[in-house]
Write a protein that binds this DNA or RNA. Structure first.
Length: 207
DNA sequence: TAGTACCA
DNA sequence: CGCC
């Protein structure tokens, strides 16, 4: 149930897109990814202020944030290694919900401990916005907020539960969005609790 | 402007 | 809000 002003056109919530078995399989694959590409702590450009969320990536490009800025790069910021391959289940998801878009290049992995939050922001570090951003929620339920394409536009909030998929396409591609809070103990998927969010993106224009 | 505060 |  969405509370507040409706999200822009092109926003889609696909509740429980992944069933429990598929979620468990995805978590198993993510553990292998994170063993090779450990979670790191992103920092705000200029100020160096830490995010409460920890991050990693898989795919050919990964999003990183540090004192120097936000960017996509082919290697992990601390190990210097290439990002691990994107799990096939995620490529399959992209094909199913973003059929007209070129292959996804980046999968940002955000880990929210139960106290972590993400302020309202736009995903706009990509070089093209015609492909959607596709998100997968795993683990504890979160309160997600989405507004319009300006910071002052009215927002709405909704709960995202484990297995839910969100598609930010069309007008909603550049909508401000964020995570207000994670509800502790709301899922048994992750042994140590918290929430994993995956966001699949196309970064570079299709040639 | 991916931090914070606040959110009716 | 106050930051670059």
């Amino acid at each position: 149930m969405t509370k507040g002003h409706p999200p822009p056109a092109g926003f889609r919530l696909l509740p429980e897109y992944f069933d429990r078995e598929a979620q468990e399989a995805l978590v198993d694959e993510l553990r292998l990814v994170l063993a090779k590409a450990p979670l790191f702590q992103p920092k705000m450009p200029k100020t160096g202020k830490a995010f409460s969320v920890r991050m990693s990536n898989c795919g050919s490009l990964g999003w990183v944030a540090d004192i120097n800025g936000y960017r996509y790069q082919p290697t992990h910021p601390t190990t210097g290694e290439k990002w691990p391959e994107m799990p096939s289940a995620l490529r399959k998801l992209w094909k199913a919900v973003a059929a007209d878009a070129p292959e996804p290049e980046a999968c940002l992995i955000n880990y929210y401990a139960t106290t972590a939050k993400m302020g309202l922001h736009q995903d706009k570090d990509e070089d093209m916005f015609s492909s959607p951003v596709v998100s997968v929620s795993l683990g504890d339920t979160a309160t997600f907020r989405i507004g319009g394409t300006t910071r002052k536009a009215p927002t709405s909030s909704m709960r995202l539960t484990s297995g839910d998929v969100v598609v930010l396409g069309g007008e909603s591609r550049l909508a401000y969005h964020g995570i207000d809070r994670v509800l502790p103990g709301s899922s048994t998927l992750l042994k140590n609790g918290g929430r994993i969010n995956l966001t699949l993106r196309r970064v570079t224009p299709d040639q």
